[in-house]
Write a protein that binds this DNA or RNA. Structure first.
Lengths: 236, 236
DNA sequence: TAGGCCATGTGGTCCGACCACATCAACTAG
DNA sequence: CTAGTTGATGTGGTCGGACCACATGGCCTA
């Protein structure tokens, strides 16, 4: 057993047993090293892994922001993991899009018509209605809208996975936007479709909502030319 | 920018650009540290994160097994991330089971009747037919059977997520087994259902296969008493 | 009293050293 | 000449110490 894994195990045990909960703070690195009879190096390696996994957040100085505190950000963890494996080109972008369609269709089909997340989604749609919005601002709201829809299903794992998928391809998605022939036309269409989706969910028509979502997502990627050279870096 | 993130970026860039592919080897830690003008400590922290993500594997000594080589194991990465967040009790086990049903139902519905993975699934079923099999051996084959089914859909992301979900709750699943009133009866039922599922897929009846899979999984967890005290540690 | 200043404690980074391990080449005994 | 031993080499694994940057809080001074 490598020593940093020992530290990892110790912390995970404390988490499972509830002795360490979200918002709680780990002992100082030097203290923890002494308690577990390992070097500070090993403690730091374990903490770095947990940080990458979105389980803790390290902050310098003293006071409330200092020390290593337990957080809960499953999205960051899964997202960077997926992104790295996309980088190794073992997870095709097309598979990610397909998975996103699957998860999000299911989410809107399951979502309750009076889920509180739908209020947020509606607010986001209002923001996207502004005509003087920049492309990047529009896309940022778009992401939040879709995540709100996913959250409405009330499944934390699906929400985390949706966030991860978005994060893992967001660089690619930005690049796709540049391929669109007419951004304004696309934006108008997206606005209409968003309202249709939200209306279907609020009308408790899950089947229709799922179909709309699938068509919405697939249509966007198809229009932007998914699949043409997604393993290349630059564009000619 | 913290220095270990700089190293992370450097490696990720090499991966994206194809200068570093699966099977390739990173420069030695000391060499990399000198090239990037950072300490070996920072290089090691970056490599530890990549190792936890299933992107590289570090091996001591000299020869073929030595050095830090690029691998591709999305399952391990996502699995440990999920497990850690389950430990913080922010990802309910019920949500994981629900997500598994969703993904696996979709997979069998999409799988082609002549997918090569189905051959492996059939072989695994033969192995599970032996009556003198231990519980843990049976469960190990069961896991591989379901993963083979998921792989048959041909979506690498879904396969990775399925593997992650299994890994994240495998400890819990083993505990559930102990709650079963009659293991032999359950095993018999599982065998029958497995054959029905595989037959449906091979008969290109995706809808039936999806229904069977959902009932199969939900039935197992319900029989074992999912939801009763899954945040507790021990059993009274 | 108001302002500045330093003691304290945290994570962030770096360095040098040594260990365990695995290979390979040189050497030695037969 | 062959077979076995032994040392050199290079890898990651671990350790301890040092110093830095930063943020807080109490002390001291004007």
């Amino acid at each position: 057993m490598r020593t940093h894994q020992l530290v990892l195990h110790w912390i995970e045990s404390r988490l499972s047993e509830g002795q360490l909960t979200v918002g709680g703070r780990l002992p100082a690195e030097r203290t923890l090293a002494e308690q577990l009879r390992v070097s500070r190096t090993s403690v730091r390696e374990a903490i770095r892994i947990l940080e990458a996994m979105g389980v803790v957040r390290a902050g310098v100085g003293s006071g409330p922001e200092a020390g290593t505190v337990v957080i809960s950000d499953p999205t960051a963890a899964l997202g960077s993991a997926l992104r790295l494996h996309v980088a190794t080109q073992h997870l095709p972008v097309a598979d990610i899009v397909e998975t996103r369609v699957l998860l999000e269709s299911w989410a809107v089909a399951k979502a309750s018509p009076d889920a509180p997340e739908l209020e947020e989604a509606a607010t986001l749609l209002d923001g996207m209605a502004r005509q003087d919005l920049g492309v990047s601002d529009f896309l940022a709201l778009d992401v939040r809208f879709h995540l709100a829809l996913a959250d409405a299903a009330g499944n934390a794992v699906v929400s985390a996975m949706m966030g991860s998928l978005r994060e893992s391809i967001q660089g690619y998605a930005a690049q796709l936007t540049a391929n669109l022939p007419d951004w304004e036309a696309t934006a108008s269409r997206l606005r209409v479709e968003h309202h249709e989706i939200l209306a279907a969910v609020r009308n408790d028509d899950g089947a229709r909502a799922a179909k709309l979502v699938a068509a919405h997502i697939e249509g966007y990627y198809k229009e932007a030319g998914l699949g043409s050279g997604h393993t290349e870096q630059g564009r000619p």
